[in-house]
Amino acid sequence: MSGPQIILWVIALAVLALCIRRGVPQAKRAVVETNRGFWRILPMFCVALPMAAFLSELVPADIATEWLGDDSGLSGILIASLAGGVMPGGPFVTFPLVITFSKAGAGVAQMTALLTAWSVYAMHRILTWEYPVLGWRFVALRLASSFFLPVAAGLIMQALLPFFAINLAAP
């Protein structure tokens, strides 16, 4: 297990310990919910991970360099923001795809914009959850106050990159 994974387990067990202190039934419910959540998410993994792996075989090695590479600058950030906004599926789809794009030459600032847009615009989530549960007015209000965030995040990352050595394709 890697460092972040060990930290995650320590935090999870600490919070579970807090649950046990509050009462054994609560802790039991937490474990039951964990189990249920795992089996609910497993089918997604079984299709999403092969999908990302096949796509990364199909995408030519440096196709992303020109449009989304480190040198694509603002236009690359804009394209990445649009792509992130229409990208369907949960994190089990998006993060493996970001690895795929990075291996194909996409830049770190551009992938930051893509991930931010996937969180902020999230077309699929607006249609399936936000609009049905909260209504169009809420969607409009939220987009009006947050539409510029993906591009801003990409530009800030671009400005900070010279000070950090980050390589997304490596880990």
């Binding site: 972040p4 935090i11 999870a12 649950c19 802790a27 419910r29 919910e33 959540g37 993994f45």
Partner: peptide
């Protein structure tokens, strides 16, 4: 690679929900 984090993340989420 993901499964250990996934299980820990789910456990943390459901434990937090109780609190």
């Amino acid at each position: 690679f993901i499964v250990p984090s996934l299980v820990a993340g789910l456990l943390l989420a459901s434990a937090l929900r109780q609190l």
